[in-house]
Simulated scan of single mutants.
Amino acid sequence: MAAADTERYRKEPSIPLRSSSAALYNNLSVLRLPGGRLAGLSAVHGPSLSLLSAAADGLGFSHRQLQAKEGGMAVSTSLLTQAAWCVLPARVLLVLTSQRGIQMYESDGSIMVYWHALDVAEHSPARAVFARGIAAAGERFICVGTSSGLVLVFDIPPKGTNVMLSEVLEQHRDAITDIAAELGQAPAGAGDLVSADDTGTLCVWSTGEEFALLSKIPAFGCSCSSVKLWNGIVAAGYGNGQIRLYEAATGLPRAEVNAHARWIYALDVAPQTGKLLSGAEDSFVHVWKLSRNPDTGEVAIEHRHAECVTDTQVCGARFCDPEGNSFAVTGYDLSEIFRYGRA
């Protein structure tokens, strides 16, 4: 880890939630529109999603509690495991995962576009069944992970409800924890999608009409809770508090940092600057800077800022703009979203 000048962030007014945040990996989603404008925030609690949409004047948020329906007109609910906005060139969808399946909504949560049920009958009653890990991939795909280790690839039409399950990726043997797509400019030969599972195994994929496995990074005895992909660098956060960097093209390790004292719950990357945000059970949020030497290809990670969110088990952390000048944080049993901006 290289030394670097620190950056200062200051706390800004927080945003109240109608319910608290559950202790789930990556339990905060941020919708950024072209131009960097913050358009929405969301956090999961039980069977519901707190959905906050930015006001037209940019001075506040409208609140909505989305009670996820399970399968068409059914009114029964199950526990949600994650929610994320997926931004594709032609449309933006809000994707929810749960113990029963995968739900896709229009970006404001007003209309359900698609529902995919998990086949609970195929699993042992002793084994939990759920979906988790959500990412937009390529020009028209959304990828979602499952507790059986499958990655489901959905082909999304430019409009309408004709969503198709186009492919199933079967390299993982354990529950998927997170999926991420390339957020920078991938070098030639590097993958543009990465998936992680409960054992810490990572798979790097190239996307297209058919998805291809490029590299498989073996587990080392610790769960990987969150992954990001930027400029051909895989950033992975683990249960032992480490952040590890790998080459997306080869899977070779490039750097390792003892970033947190406890389990990492969330990572995020600012695509325009390569800043990396990490949040963990130890009540700390850190801002790092990723870089790659254009001549040697060497990868570096530099620490830029540390923020203690007092008495809070951080479960979600996201940048609110593509440069990484502001970020938001959720915490277990916390009924507000904390915000921080550059001082």
Rank of each mutant, 00 (worst) to 15 (best):
T6I: 10
E7V: 15
E7K: 15
R10E: 11
E12G: 11
E12K: 13
P13V: 08
I15L: 14
R18H: 12
S19F: 14
A22Y: 05
A23C: 08
L24Q: 05
L28N: 07
S29D: 07
V30I: 12
V30S: 09
R32A: 12
G35Y: 13
G36W: 15
G40Q: 10
V44L: 06
G46R: 06
S48W: 00
L52G: 04
A54Q: 11
Q67G: 14
K69G: 10
G71Y: 06
M73P: 14
S78W: 00
L80N: 04
L80C: 04
A84R: 13
P89H: 04
A90C: 08
V92C: 08
S98I: 12
M104H: 10
S107N: 04
W115R: 05
L118A: 05
A121V: 11
E122N: 10
R127D: 02
V129F: 05
R132T: 00
G133T: 03
A135G: 01
V144S: 07
G145R: 08
S147R: 11
V151F: 06
D155A: 12
D155G: 11
P158C: 09
K159Q: 13
G160M: 05
T161Y: 11
M164I: 13
D178V: 01
I179F: 03
I179P: 04
E182I: 10
G189R: 07
D192H: 06
C203N: 08
V204N: 04
T207I: 08
E210G: 01
S215D: 03
A219W: 09
F220G: 03
G221Q: 06
L229A: 01
W230T: 00
I233C: 02
V234Q: 03
Q242P: 07
R244G: 03
Y246T: 02
Y246F: 12
E247N: 13
A249M: 10
L252P: 00
L252K: 07
H260Q: 04
I264A: 02
I264C: 01
I264V: 06
Y265A: 11
T273K: 12
S278A: 08
V285D: 01
V287T: 03
V287G: 01
S291D: 07
T296Q: 08
T296M: 08
H303S: 14
R304P: 09
E307L: 15
D311M: 12
T312C: 15
P322M: 07
N325A: 14
A328N: 08
G331F: 10
Y332G: 03
D333M: 15
E336L: 14
F338K: 15
F338N: 12
F338Y: 15
R342E: 10
A343E: 14
